[in-house]
Design a protein around this nucleic acid. Structure first.
Length: 195
DNA sequence: GCTTTGATGCACT
DNA sequence: GTGCATCAAAGCG
């Protein structure tokens, strides 16, 4: 298990969003591991209006301006939490992050099904809000370090070839809709034996 | 204080 | 594909 270190996140946000596809997002909760392969990400940088950090630093988005390799978790639409990995090249952006939108469930599937209250894998982790619910992620995880291998971390998983990556506009935005910054795995690679 | 609106999910067509 | 519930944060006064 190779956990990504700060240098992985200290690159342009769009590069990190692409490289996170196929990686393992792991949550350790009550001594039980949950997680899976990252299949969908979106890149946000503070130079475009769709990014929470566009208008400058506030109490809510402060984590986006902090050290890379940390988590940015926010509450949205009165119901949902969304998880981002803070990632940007400081030479180019003051702030930026990668929204992790979906996983292919691998570890602790039974626990995640129970927490979500659904039966099929299809709806288990189908969007950012359901991802947070399946992994028991909430505001208390805002700003935590993703490189320590403790509560929440991201590790090297499988390699996704460029031919299996779809790049599309981001979802649910009212601004900068046309920017191609969403990265989706079209075909889930076979899992290596080591998992 | 008060108003607007949102990086969504789900039910429904 | 469309409609809408729901509330915290941000911006304004």
């Amino acid at each position: 298990m190779k956990i990504f270190s700060y240098s992985f996140y200290a690159r342009h946000t769009t590069i990190v969003a692409r490289e996170l596809l196929g990686a393992l997002l792991i949550r350790s909760h009550n001594g039980v591991l949950h997680g899976g392969i990252i299949t969908e990400t979106e890149a946000y940088t503070n130079d475009e209006p769709a990014c929470h950090a566009f208008k400058g630093q506030t109490e809510r988005n402060g984590a986006l301006f902090g050290a890379v390799g940390h988590a940015y978790v926010y509450f949205i639409y009165g119901k949902h939490f969304c998880l981002n990995a803070v990632a940007h090249d400081k030479a180019q952006h003051a702030a930026g992050g990668v929204l992790i939108r979906a996983l292919h469930p691998v570890i602790g599937i039974e626990h995640m099904l129970q927490k979500r209250g659904v039966k099929g894998l299809k709806k288990l982790i189908s969007g950012p809000g359901t991802l947070a619910q399946a992994l028991s992620i909430d505001r208390s995880h805002n700003g935590i370090d993703l490189t320590t291998g403790q509560e929440l971390y991201i590790a090297q998983g499988v390699t996704v070839p460029d031919a299996d990556v779809k790049i599309t506009p981001r979802i649910g935005l009212s601004q900068a809709k046309d920017l191609l910054r969403r990265y989706v795995v079209a075909k889930i690679p076979d899992l290596p034996e080591s998992l």
